[in-house]
């Protein structure tokens, strides 16, 4: 299978990439890991006329602690995240479940976030932990909350000439914990269902901040807001978690397909939310 013909710019610096993207407008696409873009081009689902390859730009692959958050650069591969000493439990739990080990050597976290595939793992993680996405263009930088960044089915809120240069995962304010539970038919397959969980506890042990987000059960990665509202301000308990799990299941509107019937998927959301909250709490209290 072959993509339609295209032009390419191999950018050596970020400024060069941004200038080219500004010039190209809607015709340009950033090529980072290419593990989603290239298959889509081969299937002719995507046919960009010009690729701006950022792989040779130095210093875009950092994973570091800055000003109260973990910053992940545009060229940090999933495998780099697996190997990094990541303090955020939700990110650490999800990383080994993204794609397969060989794909993880190439695919990037920022690329996957920008791709906005509702079956992708990272956007649920980022919704749960309330990450920020840094969009850079030749005229400057915008820091976009993840809820505004993930707009719709394969649709982000980047404007012409912008690319994702960084994602920021906030550190826990207090005792924090999280988890990512994923059901897949085989390694490398898309999720049948996955649930991202984030808890940040106040000094008195009540839940100060909660994140519950769902993969592959709606047309876009979804924050289960009702589940979060049930959790926040309350002391953790099995009953509370069961109520939040029911609310998370209610936020799922899956379709029946080869990966399972809708009713089954909705029930997996319920079970995974309950289990994820219990394990996130255990990690927060550890």
């Amino acid at each position: 299978m072959y993509p339609a013909a295209f032009e390419v710019t191999k950018a050596r610096t970020l400024d060069e990439a941004l200038a080219k993207l500004a010039d190209l407008g809607d015709d340009g696409r950033v090529l980072a890991g290419g593990q989603s873009l290239i298959p889509m081009m081969k299937l002719r689902v995507a046919a960009p006329t010009h690729l701006v390859d950022i792989n040779e730009i130095p210093d875009l692959d950092g994973i570091k602690q800055v000003n109260g958050h973990m910053s992940v650069g545009a060229l940090a591969r999933h495998a780099d995240v697996v190997r990094a000493d990541v303090a955020n439990h939700t990110v650490a739990a999800a990383a080994p479940w993204v794609a397969d080990p060989v794909v993880r050597n190439r695919g990037t976290m920022c690329g996957s976030i920008a791709h906005c595939d509702p079956e992708g793992d990272w956007n649920s993680v980022m919704l749960a932990v309330r990450a920020q996405v840094v969009a850079t263009s030749s005229s400057g930088e915008r820091v976009i909350p993840i809820d505004e960044f993930v707009k719709d089915f394969f649709t982000n809120s980047l404007q012409e000439g912008e690319m994702v240069t960084e994602v920021r995962v906030p550190n826990y304010a207090g005792a924090g914990g999280g988890d990512y539970l994923k059901l897949e038919r085989k390694i490398g397959d898309y999720a049948t269902v996955a649930v991202a969980i984030h808890l940040d506890l106040a000094g008195d042990g009540t839940i100060a901040q909660a994140g519950v987000a769902l993969t592959a059960v709606n047309h876009v990665n979804t924050r289960a807001s009702d589940a979060e509202a049930i959790l926040v301000g309350n002391a953790p308990s099995e009953e509370l978690f069961a109520a939040a799990a029911d609310a998370a299941a209610a936020a799922a509107d899956p379709v029946s397909d080869i990966r399972g019937p809708a009713e089954y998927k909705r029930d997996v959301v319920r079970v995974f939310t309950r289990r994820g909250l219990a394990s996130a709490l255990a990690k927060a209290q550890d």
């Binding site: 299978m1 390419v8 191999k10 090529l31 290419g34 593990q35 290239i38 298959p39 081969k42 299937l43 390859d53 792989n55 397969d100 080990p101 060989v102 794909v103 050597n105 190439r106 490398g188």
Partner: peptide
């Protein structure tokens, strides 16, 4: 030919990658 099976795996600078999901110019 769709990044699933891994038979096209080669080592790029020592790291396994699926060569059906990379352009030749990227190996330059």
């Amino acid at each position: 030919d769709t990044t699933s099976c891994g038979v096209c795996t080669v080592l790029l600078d020592g790291t396994p990658v699926k060569s059906c999901t990379m352009f030749a110019f990227q190996a330059d």
